[in-house]
């Protein structure tokens, strides 16, 4: 127990790094995922095919491989960045595919008549998407997006293996130092993850109930 309480600051810095990683990778991949979803429904066949290929490759690759790629292959190509940045890149690449599919499911839930009416008054593809489709897709898409975010939070733990001092790697360091209290240390680590993921999950259920009720 004291192994946890005495080292609270270490947890808190770990938590802060996890949050930062989540925030940056989450924003980047949400934005990129939305663009990729737009590509996947665009009238341009090449964009559709490229988008589909990206999603299928990334979704079916273990995230650890994506991390390996970012942390070991990119430096070989002469790109030298901090491990934190590599972790951001890896998480963003990976979760772009998942955010894309969540957004695309939301888009598909909007009645096709809406896009048709938008095209009929002369709106282009981008305008139809921005003004008509996405605002309506957002309602059904928020809960699945939060679920992707939760998965992302949990995946930040993989960054520990690549030298980022986020929550899990700080906990590992602690566990090594306080070897007789490993159980406590890891238990507390779980608790800190839950601190992030449980509220997110509750928010998702709350929004789900609220949005379904409103529509």
């Amino acid at each position: 127990m004291s192994a946890v309480l005495d080292n609270l600051p270490i947890y808190v810095t770990g938590l802060a790094w996890t949050l930062l990683l989540t925030l940056i990778a989450g924003s980047v991949s949400l934005l990129a995922g939305t663009l990729l979803a737009a590509a996947r429904i665009s009238p341009v066949p090449l964009l559709r095919a490229g988008g589909a290929l990206y999603v299928h490759v990334l979704r079916n690759t273990p995230i650890t491989i994506v991390f390996f790629f970012a942390a070991f292959v990119l430096p070989q190509l002469g790109i030298s960045l901090s491990y934190f940045t590599f972790a951001v890149i890896a998480l963003s690449l990976y979760y772009t595919a998942f955010f894309c599919e969540a957004v695309r499911a939301g888009i598909n839930a909007v009645s096709p008549g809406q896009a048709e009416a938008a095209r009929a008054i002369g709106l282009g593809f981008g305008q139809t998407l921005c003004h008509v489709i996405l605002p309506q897709a957002l309602r059904s898409v928020v809960p699945p997006l939060i679920n992707v975010l939760i998965a992302l939070i949990k995946s930040t733990a993989v960054a520990s293996a690549f030298g980022v001092a986020e929550l899990l790697s700080n906990a590992e360091a602690l566990a090594n130092a306080e070897s007789n209290a490993v159980l406590w240390v890891l238990g507390a680590t779980c608790l800190f993850y839950l601190l992030l993921t449980v509220p997110a999950g509750l928010l998702a259920s709350y929004l789900e109930a609220k949005l379904v009720f409103n529509s």
Binding site: S111, G113, Q114, E116, A117, A118, A120, I121, G122, L123, Q127, H131, V132, P135, Q136
Partner: peptide
């Protein structure tokens, strides 16, 4: 060429006024 559909297809998230002004403003 204006088009009117069987299922109306008004933009569900917009007021009638917004529905009618969207095209004139954006297009």
């Amino acid at each position: 060429v204006g088009m009117v559909f069987q299922s109306f297809n008004l933009f569900a998230h917009m007021t009638l006024l917004q529905n009618v002004t969207l095209g004139p403003i954006k297009v």
